[in-house]
Design a protein around this nucleic acid. Structure first.
Length: 210
DNA sequence: TATAGGATTGCC
DNA sequence: GCAATCCTATAG
């Protein structure tokens, strides 16, 4: 079996929707102060450029979104609703503001560390179900904002463990009001760690397809 | 300086 | 179903 390989800058330096699809089934690894954490990514969304009304760069550069304009492979984090952080992987060429939002993953290594960071009682499989939970369980904050994930010795990076490609489903992005028609959310059909109510998922939905 | 609102979560 | 919570962007 081939050993895991770190994803290099070339992985992020591509059209964002391609990166989105390819992120599914890859692993987020963080050599944290409390120990090594790893998780299999099962849900992401794309936010692409100043013409995407839902992208933080829709009104041009600002203090908050500045790292969206950094080189591909940069981590972009921000605070949402005064309570939670969200992690993005910056994509495409430098100065073009686009990123992949991490929405859900399956805990693989360091599950007890993740659990200790979480106040509410959650099933282990749901510790990373939601963008806020991903950052909380991993202990990621604005401290990691602007971090370069594509260096040889990065302590926060994506890894390919050469798993089989997951079955990918597509849907509108969650929680936004603008550009809600774009199908820029991607998730692993077979994972029970995908965020949101079951009605967001095609399979397992009690409602008939519209 | 004032204010509206958000790529969420968890409790009611 | 909705409040919590606080930073950011925008308006005055």
């Amino acid at each position: 079996m081939a050993r895991p390989t770190r994803l290099t800058r070339a992985f992020y330096d591509r059209p964002t929707l391609e990166v989105c699809r390819d992120c599914l089934g890859k692993y987020l690894v963080y050599i944290s102060p409390k120990g090594r954490l790893a998780a299999r990514i099962v849900e992401v969304e794309g936010y692409i450029g100043e013409n995407d009304p839902a992208c933080h760069a829709a009104s041009g550069p600002s203090k908050r979104n500045r790292h969206l304009y950094d080189k591909p492979g940069t981590a972009y984090l921000y605070l949402i609703y005064g309570s939670y952080y969200c992690l993005n992987f910056v994509t495409e060429k430098e100065s073009f503001p686009a990123a992949v939002l991490l929405r859900a993953a399956e805990p693989v290594e360091g599950v007890e560390i993740m659990r200790r960071r979480t106040e509410t009682v959650l099933p282990g499989s749901k510790l990373l179900s939601g963008p806020g939970r991903c950052c909380r369980s991993f202990g990621l904050t604005l401290e990691q904002n602007g971090y370069d994930m594509a260096l040889e010795d990065s302590i926060l990076y994506l890894e390919d463990r050469h798993d089989p490609k997951p079955e990918v489903e597509v849907s509108p992005r969650i929680g936004i009001t603008k550009a809600a028609d774009r199908l820029w959310r991607f998730y692993d059909r077979d994972s029970n760690a995908v965020s949101g109510p079951a009605s967001f998922r095609r399979s397992g939905s009690a409602r008939a397809d519209r």
